[in-house]
């Protein structure tokens, strides 16, 4: 993992000075603003606003992750700097891990910023106007934990997509397609074919295990389940592993 910290520092620096990061951040926060506003507008509701807020997490993820990760490896390959980097005492693993960690840190930072909405609201709304707390700890911690855990896989998917091509656009589209299938594919499938619970036979527990919205429902209510941790961490591990193999293979060609 030699060079990992150097690459991580470099990645974060590049992301922080890149206009694309700020555009992504602005679009992300704008979307979350719209979501939060709609949640407040739809009150009274049977669920806490913060739980509903997290239940729409997929909306910004679908475009923010491709924007953050599309250039990571694809751009290096297009510019021919990937081969140069590999001539230094740096391994493909360190490159992939460094790029992943950089994008992941920015991804998490955006979500931490999004927490500003419930925090600001709790200060702005006059006392006694709400029969609940905007800063209810359990759904806030649970929701953020889910975003952090699932984010490992989503960012890894972006890095993986970026490792497959030289074109940033293709990488972004590929990443979007993967995320769309992973997050919404099952939900859409069952919207047209009926209740997701009624898949007969052995598929029921498998699909049940993979259902993003079920996991999110638990986390955003304040129930932390160990299964999504394993699922998302192992998926991230596999995707990054394949990305390392791809980088190794491409660099030697």
């Amino acid at each position: 993992m030699r060079g990992f910290l150097t690459i991580l520092r470099h990645e974060i620096f590049v992301l922080l000075i890149s206009p694309a990061t700020f555009v992504a951040g602005f679009l992300f926060l704008l979307m979350m603003w719209l979501v939060y506003w709609q949640v407040l507008k739809a009150m009274p509701s049977k669920e806490l606003p913060v739980s509903l807020f997290f239940q729409l997490f997929w909306l910004p993820v679908l475009f923010m992750v491709p924007l953050l990760t599309m250039r990571s490896i694809a751009e290096e390959r297009r510019m021919g700097t990937l081969e140069s980097t590999l001539t230094t005492p740096t391994t493909p693993l360190a490159i992939v891990a460094g790029k992943f960690a950089g994008a992941y840190v920015v991804f998490l930072s955006f979500w931490v910023l999004a927490l500003g909405y419930p925090i600001l609201t709790s200060f702005q709304v006059p006392e006694g106007s709400a029969n609940f707390s905007f800063m209810e700890a359990s759904p806030l911690i649970g929701g953020l934990l889910f975003v952090a855990v699932s984010g490992t896989m989503y960012v890894a998917a972006g890095i993986f997509a970026s490792s497959l091509t030289r074109s940033q656009l293709v990488a972004a589209m590929l990443c979007f397609a993967i995320l769309f299938m992973v997050i919404l594919g099952e939900q859409i499938l069952f919207t047209y074919s009926g209740n997701p619970e009624t898949v007969p036979g052995r598929w029921q527990p498998i699909l049940d295990y993979l259902r993003t919205f079920r996991q999110l429902e638990d986390f955003s209510r304040g129930i932390v389940d160990s299964r999504p941790f394993v699922l998302y961490f192992s998926s991230a591990f596999v995707l990054l592993g394949i990305a390392v193999v791809v980088v190794e293979r491409k660099a030697t060609r």
Partner: peptide, 29 residues
């Protein structure tokens, strides 16, 4: 049932203040 009782003016003000968050990121950029 979770309820929020603020009038239209307060709601409008709240919306404006919350919008400062994405705006500040754009400004920083």
């Amino acid at each position: 049932e979770y309820e929020l009782t603020i009038d239209a003016q307060e709601f409008k003000e709240l919306r404006g203040r919350l919008f400062l968050l994405p705006l500040s990121v754009l400004l920083l950029g």
